[in-house]
Each structure stands twice: as structure tokens, then as C-alpha cells.
Design a protein around this nucleic acid. Sequence first.
DNA 1: TTGTATGCGTTATCAT
DNA 2: ATGATAACGCATACAA
Lengths: 334, 334
Amino acid sequence: MSSNRIKQVSSVDVARLAGVSRAAVSRTFSNNGYVSDVTREKVMLAAKQLGYRVNHLARSLNRQRSDLIGLVVADLENPFRSQQINDLSEAILAKNYRPFLIPTSVARDSTQVIEMLMHYCVSGVIITSDTPPEDIYKNCIEQSVPVVLINKKDKYPQVDRVVCDNEKGIALLVEAFVQRSCKRVVIIGSEAVSYSIQMREALFKEQAAQAGIETDTILGPNHDYQGGVVAANILSNQANLPEGVFCCNDYLALGVIDQLRERIGHTETEKIAIAGFDDMQQASWKSYQLTTIRQPTQDMASQTINLLVSRIGDPEQASRTYRTDVFLVKRTSL
Amino acid sequence: MSSNRIKQVSSVDVARLAGVSRAAVSRTFSNNGYVSDVTREKVMLAAKQLGYRVNHLARSLNRQRSDLIGLVVADLENPFRSQQINDLSEAILAKNYRPFLIPTSVARDSTQVIEMLMHYCVSGVIITSDTPPEDIYKNCIEQSVPVVLINKKDKYPQVDRVVCDNEKGIALLVEAFVQRSCKRVVIIGSEAVSYSIQMREALFKEQAAQAGIETDTILGPNHDYQGGVVAANILSNQANLPEGVFCCNDYLALGVIDQLRERIGHTETEKIAIAGFDDMQQASWKSYQLTTIRQPTQDMASQTINLLVSRIGDPEQASRTYRTDVFLVKRTSL
DNA sequence: TTGTATGCGTTATCAT
DNA sequence: ATGATAACGCATACAA
């Protein structure tokens, strides 16, 4: 008789071969409870011979936690976003958890996301979409699943946040515009909802005013390359061009630069001081050389998982906010 | 007494409330076996009241398959790669499987990747790294875990492949160079190992020769932006510049264009016909307007998951190769 | 230090 | 069509 499904080697097989009990095997592999050196040796040997691996499904079922971390993410096509995901999944693995990727498109509503998270008993959830439906994390805390929000506005009991220091970043940029003695700067934002974008827009307006800089705001339909293109079209139609342009993120900035060059030419564009925010990879490309604010994605990632692990250990603690440090990356665009 | 762990509502709770057996609950939710309409109604009602969700951990343990698809991926910072991941994870979800993200960095060796895959009893594996250590998929087929390789060379019994039609793509490009009546074209490749890159390099050389085009090859250290920059430096030092440049992927091409502009100026660069391959998002940016070959990532993704699902259903079938269609995206660079 | 027994939540088999 | 029961593989409380 041939079963098409290969019988998985389990702890009983190892126990039998090693001449010990299943419990001994379990203890050696979970590093829990007492097990003598000689027993451990026997178990390890038998395990190696049989090619035994702990079944995490069974372990999770028993322990009532999966060590899976739900990674709820939108806009994976955004290079800055994929940078975040890269660093986050590395950080998750470094802490011995596993990343469970959940892309949220417009097509998939939050209910399905929640279902997926719950079906697999995730140990925690990281949300890094621009506009995370709040039912997602409300549901999570209701089921007492720890949540960390990245660059999100909402304060919510029992959910932690990691945000980048927009205040400091904007201050650095305003100072840079001041040093270029810009009297008027146009802010490029987005109509689409995003905590980061809208906050930076407001902060820049405020801090620029204090520095005696006149501002004006143009919104693209979105905060991506195409949004920047649209905004630049509007900008280039204005009677007089500003001395400076601040784009609420790099993605917008690249579109703005490209379209400005097309509309008013390279040399005219070069006269305008342009800055972005995030320091995505493409900002350093020679076609752009964009002056911007670096968001340290690795630090952000490790702090995120730190908060999450800490909350998994103690779910009841008060919510915390970690603010990542930022700094100015000065290139030729400003 | 207060247990800090909330008791998860299970099928027994639903069964009790609905006044039926656990089996009935199981059958309604797994759509397996007979269940009368009235019973189903009762079960669904009770489930809703209790907020019951099937525990996929337990289900997987019982069924001996997790419905998790391991997504083994390197270079997530590469925008084309993240595009692939985006489409793949969508396709996986569409087929009711779950993406299990496994980034492979240099730091993490293949053993750990294999361990992760096996620990979670993944139902299948998709590998889309440039240089997948072959022990990964050897191990997989040894444990009879279905594997699909994307744009990889290796033919291996029982593993399927999805490759893009490099032959056709190169043919289209060579024809474009011919129409521009280029007599000499420099090929920009990479020293780093990559099936796609090296294959395109060889194909272009061969097909160009047949078309009477003289070729010359320059290798960057890597097939990314920086690699293109390095290659362009070498190129610009050559005695006489070629009429055309073919870069084995867009990522290289963008670096080549930028560095060429810096070294020989915009106008000189414009005289050179430049083409890439992949059609990554940035290729369409106005600074580049790169003529290239479109790899249809969505089609690729859905074919990949189709092959995988089919093999999950019948693991013993002979290996297949699906070749995705490609087409020329003509922009101003050529 | 080790072994025994029980439970985690589901599904599949076999009766009824 | 429905219900009891035995797995699935592991971890732990308890006894020894």
C-alpha cells in the first residue's frame, strides 16, 4: 500500500529511537523544564538521524500562540514601503517570530484582513498602511492581539505607535530654506488621506510662517510620483514661480522635479530649491540628488518589533509612542 | 480567578449553543460532507453570536497541510522585485492560500530558510531569488513540498518553472536597434550570478551578430543602479562611444543613463540608443523614458500560483515550464 | 530528572 | 443527515 502523503516524523518516533519519553523530546527542543545532558544527547542524535523538526503548527496550537506577526501593508509598489517591509521582516525574524504578509488592496476589505489574522492566531500585528481601517486594530485589541501602528495618527488604548520625528525633520528643512534665503515656498501635498503627509504639510506651513517664509499649498491627487506630476503642472501654471518647493515625501518630489523640468526646463528648475522627506533610495539617484530627511527604516523596524514583543509579554500596559530620530541629507536640489 | 489568556471560542462552544455536534459545526465551515439547511442555519447563528472563527492552526494540523505558501525572496529593495512580491501575494490570496514571507539575506543561510519552511508545513514554495541555493528546493522536493521557480535556470524533476520569454524580448530589442541602424551596441551585464541577466546577455550577443550588429560587453559588479553607474564609467572611458547600449535589466539601465549624462552630458547621451528589460515602474519616469521589454508580472504571478496549485493536487507529475509573453514598450530612449 | 496523562481545536471515519 | 470517536503533534501539570 502506498500512501501519497509521507508520514511526518514526530516526537514519538524520536522518543522511540532514543529510548526516552515524548516529554523528554519536547523538553529538549523547547528548552523548557529539566533534561539531563545524556538524555539531551540521545534525543539530539535520534532527531538528527530521523530528520526530525518540531511542528510549529502543533506547538502553536498547544501554546495558544503562533509566533506569527501579521504584517498589514498597503502600497507595496511604493519603494519606500517595500524598504520598510524588508527591514520589518528582517527584524521579525531576528526576534524569532515569523512575518505573515497581508497586503491590503482596495479590493480586499478590512473584514477579510481581520479574518486572516484571527484564523492564524497571530501573536501580534504591525500596521503600516497610510489609511488603516480602524476596525482592524479595534478588532485586534478586542481579541487582545497586540498591535503596533507605524506613522499613524490614532491614539488608542493598548496599541503602541512608532512615528518618525516630523517636527524635527520639518525644522531642519525650514532652516535649510532659510539659509537659502527663500521668501516663498510652495508645499506639495496630497488629497489622499495620510497621517505623515498631512502632518508634514501642517508643520511646514506653521514653522515656515514663524521663520518669515510665505507658503502656498498644492495638492496632488495622491502622494506618489504621478501625484507629483499633477501638482507640478499646476505649479508651473502659476504667475510667478516660488523660490522653494517642499514636497511632503520623496515620491511626490521625484514626480515634481521631472514634470517641472519638462514644463519650465532644466535650468529654471535648478533655480528652485526643492526638498523631500523620507530619503527613499531613488532620492539619491543622480538625476535627482534630492535633499531630504532620512527616516531610519532599520531603527524604526527594530523599535517596532521591540514594542510588539514587549506588549506580547505584558498586554495590559499603557500605550507608548516611540519617535524615531531623523536627520537632514543634504544634496544638490536644495 | 482570572486567566490572562482569553479562552478562544471553539467549535464545541458553537455546537453546544446550536444544540448540535462538533462534527456538524466542522462540516458547515469546511463545506465538506452533508449538512442540512436547518442545521447550517443554527450553526451559523450560534457562530455569529459567539464570534467563532475556525482555527487554521488546528485545521492545518489535522489536515496535514497548512495552505501556507513560502515566498522565498531576495533583494526586496529592488523595485521590480517588490512588484513581483506584490502580485504574487495577491495571487496567493486569490487562490485562498496565505503568503509566508521568507526574505533571504546573505546573513541567513539556506538551512534556516529550509527550517522555517518545514517547521510550518508549507503547502508549497515559490522561489524568486536571483541565486537560490539549490539545497532549498532540493530539500523541498525531498520532503515532497511542491516548488515553483521564477526566472531560474535549473531544471529539476518535479519542480515547475515560470520564465519570461527572453528570446522574444531580445529579438524585439535587436530589431529596434536595427531600425535605428545601429552598427555597434554595448551590452551591459553583471558579474553577479543571475539567470535572467546572463541569459539576456548571451541572447543579445547572439541575435545581434545574426543581425550584423557588432557587440561588446561591460559588466557591472551587480545588476542594480550602482552596477549601472560603474559600467557607465567604464563605457565613457572608451575611445569611441557606441551607437547603442543594451542593459540586461532596467535597474542597470537607469544607473547607466544617469552616469552617462554626468560623464558625457545630456546631449551626447541622447544620441545613444539605450534599452533595458523588465519595464519596472521607474523606467517610465520622465527623466528616463526608457525603451524596454515589459515582463507582465501579474500574468507571471497568476501562472506561478496556477502551477503550484496544480502540483499540490498532483505532486508526481512531470515538471513544466511556463513562458510568459513579453512585448516592447517603446519610449524615447531608443 | 523522567515518564504518564491530558488537552489544544479540527477533521475524518464509521456508525446510526 | 447526524453524532461519537480517534487521530494530528506538541507541551505541561503532576506523579514518581
